[in-house]
Design a protein around this nucleic acid. Sequence first.
DNA 1: CCGTGTGTCCCGAATATCGGAACGTTGTTT
DNA 2: AAACAACGTTCCGATATTCGGGACACACGG
Lengths: 297, 297
Amino acid sequence: MAGREKSDGGNQSVARALTILNLLASRSEPLGVREIARQLRLAPSIAQRLLKTLAKAGFLEQTGTTLRYMIGYKAFQVGNAFTAQTNLHSAVMPELYALAEQQINGFLGVLRDRSVVYLATVQSNGPVALNHRPGAQAHLHSTAMGKALLAEMPEDEAQALLTQRALPRLTPHSRTNPTQLMAELRSARARGYTTSEEENRAGFFSAGAVVRDATGRGIAVISGAVPITGLKEQDRARIGRLVVEAAHNASRKLGAPNTAQVYDLSAERPTTRLPRVKRKSSRRQASSAARRWHERR
Amino acid sequence: MAGREKSDGGNQSVARALTILNLLASRSEPLGVREIARQLRLAPSIAQRLLKTLAKAGFLEQTGTTLRYMIGYKAFQVGNAFTAQTNLHSAVMPELYALAEQQINGFLGVLRDRSVVYLATVQSNGPVALNHRPGAQAHLHSTAMGKALLAEMPEDEAQALLTQRALPRLTPHSRTNPTQLMAELRSARARGYTTSEEENRAGFFSAGAVVRDATGRGIAVISGAVPITGLKEQDRARIGRLVVEAAHNASRKLGAPNTAQVYDLSAERPTTRLPRVKRKSSRRQASSAARRWHERR
DNA sequence: CCGTGTGTCCCGAATATCGGAACGTTGTTT
DNA sequence: AAACAACGTTCCGATATTCGGGACACACGG
């Protein structure tokens, strides 16, 4: 028979099964065995076996009428453990609700996979509610949360993330120039919060700030978004202040040491704040900037 | 070289990987390679390979200090697709928020794996807020949501679920007698909603009702819970009425045909309301009651 | 009534997986 | 300090396990 794909040290079957999960999660509608096999370049018999295994474990469910597969409750259970592992939610959510009472849509996100992953959304009580699904991803350069993440990391890493690939223009107001964005990050560090005015979503202004854990490291970001209709300059400043305050409160609940200086002001590569774990065993590591950022936990 | 486990037609590696996900989701703290291998009776080298594969795909993440593994963001993304697949949330959540304004804690759940799986929680604005994590499971016989699910299914299936295994007594008020519970279900059908008074959680009264989709089939349940302190009989009725109303509104949003008769009143095995899909190909099916219930989608 | 679609099952081939053993490192105890 | 235990990781031969083409029964549409 034809040779299988080259093994990269991992488990091929598991990798394929996870690809199936990703595929079915991205499509909102259920898919059949052969359709999945086609999209993933798999033999139908292989896809069928993997699907059956996934379904038996509850990670997939199939519709009774058509026998198509969709994401199952077990995936939901396991996925929700991601947020249950930390006390981030309990620290941040009350603050987001407080923002909602101020007619501000609140969001919580983390950096994963070179982008912002939304963890939670709290819609404002205001007339125009904004909603991002938990788990959804957004670009780093167009959102206030993304900029806050960029501002928090060392400049060279931010530079790398902004230059390694072209920045898509999501709205007419999107900034796609890396050097301009880097300058914006610098001023944002001085100010304490980032902003995005219609750069990700037309008609909305948002401000973002970093949430820190007990070690002082930024572990997440929050943002507040409002419609721009009739928005004055003082409103922008007020929203920025409220978001910074919310981030500060959440950080304090997490035991952050000193959130007065919100950002690390040293533009140069800062000496690692906490004594880096010195596993000097020379294991080769994926060296992408995002990966490095993420490893520093 | 002892023989490996017998294959049941599925993929062994994938099944093991999913077991790892379940294990790490149940433990709130990260686990190391050898510890996982021990708990799952796996050789450390196998566990290490599976873990690496899961981590490379983002379904697991490992702490930088200790190299222990925990649930990753990809699992969160995939899991959230479970609720994004239906419009259940958009139909129900506003109703739960309406309950919250009435000082009632609102819950949304579905039947999976012989138990209620919580999909969403909306805490009341009242003094005592009740919170169940999304993805958490609860017993069918002790919760108002569980009883609503039991009341909705044919009597023999409910009977089976209540008698196949002993019903745990979670509080001093828990009902553990199947026949008494069946009688309670009958009266609940006539009334339109189910109740649970301190049977699952001490100090709380809750009422549950069924949410129906466009075909009239019950696809989910909601419940409202309040502290029992100073609760009068008329309050119980009022909460039941509000929950029924919320379920009715949600069902209407889903296009349910006629939610006036909330429950199927025929105590006898009801003739299947909609023409059963007649795939007469004789594929053997797992014949648990929960499975049958679930298949009728 | 045929043609194409589907999900499922079978089975020989051979490959990707298994898992014991060994290595380097960490941090705890002696 | 030295020994110990535990950890994550890698190696590698044997083989159980997976692969995947082919075939079957059924469903749908023309």
